[in-house]
């Protein structure tokens, strides 16, 4: 009797995860659909930038907000305050005390546009958007996976070699951005914010 009850318990515990998301088949498209956020979500992050021109990495802390269907906001809180917001076809950059936001058209910066569609595609579960901009490769399984996004456009590849997204089930764990010159950025998701 006991082993059975244990299994039952384990099964019951796993049920929410399975019901919530487990994709029916295992493919980039199935994973991306499963990742889709339906409501606003805020997470804390730690970002490390390993740049060729620097002898030690830059470390930033802050929160990442996703608002369906496609708005992404990055608040840097330390070592200084700064907010980046991807909305429509614009990136706005806001610094406290700088007086008003600076607006940058994504279309004018191919690297930025690729990055924006990467975040939007993954968080918004927009497989078609990702497919338009990236070649996708999936490693691992539902319990621990890695999705590699390689930009299709040569203009974007000049700035961004690859985005690697790591996760477990529906939870995103880490983004890694590889740049052509050897620069590398790691954004680690630390847990739910606020």
């Amino acid at each position: 009797m006991r082993p059975i009850r244990l299994w039952l318990l384990a099964g019951l515990c796993a049920l929410p995860t399975v019901l919530a998301a487990a994709p029916a088949s295992w493919s980039p498209s199935a994973l991306v659909h499963a990742l889709k956020r339906h409501t606003e979500e805020t997470v804390r992050f730690t970002e490390e930038k390993h740049l060729q021109v620097l002898s030690s990495p830059l470390v930033l802390h802050g929160t990442l907000v996703f608002r369906p269907p496609d708005e992404v906001e990055k608040h840097v809180t330390a070592p200084y305050g700064e907010t980046y917001r991807i909305r429509g076809d614009e990136l706005s950059i806001e610094r406290p005390g700088a007086g008003g936001a600076r607006h940058v058209a994504l279309a004018d910066y191919p690297g930025l546009a690729a990055l924006a569609s990467g975040f939007r595609g993954v968080l918004g579960g927009d497989y078609l958007l990702l497919q338009r901009h990236y070649r996708m490769t999936l490693h691992g399984q539902w319990s621990r996976w890695e999705l590699d996004l390689t930009p299709l456009a040569a203009s974007a590849r000049k700035f961004l070699r690859q985005i690697r997204v790591y996760g477990r089930h529906r939870d995103l764990e880490r983004f890694e951005l590889q740049e052509p010159g050897g620069d590398r950025t790691v954004i680690r998701i630390d847990g739910p914010g606020r």
């Binding site: 620097l54 950059i93 910066y109 690297g111 930025l112 961004l160 740049e179």
Partner: peptide, 8 residues
């Protein structure tokens, strides 16, 4: 350099 728009 820390900004996402650092490419250029």
């Amino acid at each position: 350099l820390a900004s996402p728009a650092a490419g250029l």
